[in-house]
Design a binder for these strands. Structure first.
Lengths: 195, 195
DNA sequence: TAGTTTGTGTACCGACCGTTTCAGAATGCA
DNA sequence: TGCATTCTGAAACGGTCGGTACACAAACTA
């Protein structure tokens, strides 16, 4: 063997994620990635092959460290009846919290969806899969909240919530007020009729 | 006086709009804008001052030639009861039509919302105003469709439709199927109860 | 026709882009 | 200690970026 890696890959990827998240893939310059990660370009290219390789790693980190932890309660078995509402409430809070990266940069993947990088098939698939994952989780949450309702109605509701979350992410950067409004719309749809 | 302009400004701006729409502001290179408009950079800079100046003109053209014509029936007085449904149906058709720019590039302004250009205050305001204009028009449409319902309920419905349209635009590029699904969700919300 | 104003083409500016190369420093194993 | 392997720093690659300078062609007014 030879010398071992002195930096923690996970930490580096997380730092790169911040840059991609704030700037988008195209505008994230290699010097900016060097500065954020503390790595020289040489090390970056040695470890990740290309800017794109680092981006792909950052996307995985985004899914694993940001998206999925928030969705986890919706994947429990059984799902708590309040889990969907908790999810939306938590997201709402994040979008409102000043300085929070989700608040001023939205969602890495929703942003990618409207950017030039979206012309890449693999990225397109990743974003579509992300949406499907979100939809599936919200579906479980809706089922747990309204177990008595017809499946078609629960599906309709889950579709609506998914779209509302996407729309919130799409507009946070320019109009946080209506982004929060989208989530509030979703929360109203999930209200239980008075007993 | 001296020589007069030999090109039609409106045509040039429309050509530039196509480039910005497909590529986004940052990735729209000056050479690409030259090719699309048929103008030399010198003429572009003489007439519009900067790439950004041309972009601003393109945004106005987008609002005037693309957004507002589609919204026009919703601004009529009185609004036809079917106008909202027609709007959503027409948009749905455009998002499905292959080769249509809205189908493979979404909405210029929703895309801008997740891009680096969204850090510019003027652009932020423009996109927020665009959303407000869409919301207002859909609000009129919803009012015309359900004149008997309470105002709060009509507002809720208009908010939902607006978010659903935004979410459709946000994802067309990567997942046209669920984009259409968002519009279908909106159309279902607008169904009239059987008489 | 003379003079003035304005549009247009060519060439070039410095800056930055992502990527590659290569030498050397650092650390593992035998 | 010596070798092997890997990480790291510096420098340079060709290419493209948005923007500018300037000369000239064009077309209007008088």
């Amino acid at each position: 063997m030879g010398r071992t890696q002195t930096f923690e890959t996970a930490r580096v990827v997380r730092a790169a994620l911040g840059v991609f998240w704030r700037s988008g893939y195209e505008a994230a310059s290699v010097p900016a990635l060097e500065a954020a990660t503390g790595l020289n370009r040489s090390s970056i290219y040695h470890s990740f092959g290309s800017k794109r390789g680092l981006f792909d790693a950052a996307v995985q980190a985004y899914l694993d460290d940001v998206v999925r932890p928030r969705l986890r309660p919706l994947l429990a078995d059984p799902v708590a009846p309040g889990a969907v509402v908790d999810y939306l409430t938590g997201l709402r809070a994040a979008l409102v919290r000043p300085g929070e990266i989700q608040a001023d940069s939205g969602c890495l993947l929703v942003n990618a969806s409207g950017a030039p990088i979206s012309r890449d098939d693999a990225v397109r698939q990743t974003v579509a899969d992300y949406r499907a994952e979100l939809r599936a989780a919200l579906g479980r949450g809706v089922d747990a909240r309204f177990p008595g309702r017809a499946e078609s109605e629960r599906d309709r509701l889950a579709d609506l919530c998914t779209s509302l979350v996407v729309s919130a992410f799409a507009l946070v950067r320019v109009d946080p007020h209506s982004a929060v409004g989208s989530l509030d719309s979703a929360l109203m749809l999930l209200e239980r009729p008075r007993s």
